[in-house]
Design a protein around this nucleic acid. Structure first.
Lengths: 159, 159
DNA sequence: TACATTTGCGTAACCAGTTACAAATATTTA
DNA sequence: TAAATATTTGTAACTGGTTACGCAAATGTA
């Protein structure tokens, strides 16, 4: 029996962390196994750039609700592997316009086949959990309304 | 509208990661705000040592389903702050027996009050999600039966 | 008993996120 | 127009996880 499950509510955050890590590392192993030369999370940026033609770091970090330094790191790697080309915005020289490279466009059809397999896996995993997506959304929405810290401060004061 | 939610199954893993990070950082902020001198995850080890009197690194890492180097890091910090005392096992000198220090025992009642507030928060967050715990367990169980990578390899071959 | 294998734990190097700070450019305002 | 403020991007230092490796001690086996 799993200790984190045993302790009920006290273990929930750590279970979510553990699951998230497991999925991340396993996805990385999958890409390595399939010899894909990409990393987890890159697919989000590929998807955004397939939709948008060009985006800046700031726009991507807003879309993904992620800090901009995190995006900078990911983009830096993707550029190093020649999946992204950058040009400076003519009307605002601070902005770097990010676009898919030729190499990226060449490989995206293959990548999509693998991402489709990932989607199948995800579907399998929640096949018997018809409320999971809905209830996860509820969780996300509550946490973004008022963060965990502030909620807990209030709860502590009321105890 | 949140892009990760828009893209459906393709965004699920990243949503779990994002939520897990949000909870982790917010919990750390909570401890800092409450001036508690502890970090997230330590509570799992405190709970285990309240139940067990003494444990080794290996036992803890097995209980928490976490790599032993991760435990070593956490324990090292807890020792540095004098929450844990160690002695070498008399019958097996490789083993370090970990026990709660006097300081830990003194402060645990206060810590528990704060952890109770955390539990209240968690309860609030899933109050409207009656299937969440059950379906999370199902998810964990499926992933531990066969990992995400192997599932995806199979799915790719079948496509 | 001697050698091979396993176990416990520590370290190193890596990955992926965060906050805090800095520098350059744009924009707003006095 | 000049100065203050805001935005964009980048870097540094931190957290918290992983795998890979090494060493010492314990255990199994020939």
């Amino acid at each position: 029996m799993d200790y984190l499950q045993q302790i009920g509510f006290a273990g929930l955050n750590s279970r979510i962390k553990r699951l998230s890590d497991e999925l991340l590392y396993s996805t990385r192993d999958y890409y390595k196994n399939a010899d894909l030369d990409i990393e987890p999370n890159w697919h989000l940026i590929f998807l955004l750039l397939e939709e948008h033609e060009s985006l800046t770091i700031t726009e991507i970090s807003q879309e993904l609700r992620m800090s901009h330094p995190a995006c900078v790191k990911i983009i830096k790697k993707m550029k190093k592997r020649d999946y992204i080309d950058t040009t400076t915005d003519k009307s605002d020289s601070r902005k770097q316009l990010l676009k898919l490279s030729g190499k990226a466009k060449d490989r995206l059809p293959l990548f999509h086949k693998h991402w489709d397999a990932c989607i199948e896996t995800t579907k399998d995993l929640i096949k018997k959990s018809p409320h999971f997506l809905q209830e996860l959304s509820e969780f996300e929405s509550l946490v973004s309304e008022e963060n965990y810290m502030n909620r807990t401060i209030k709860n502590f004061d009321e105890l």
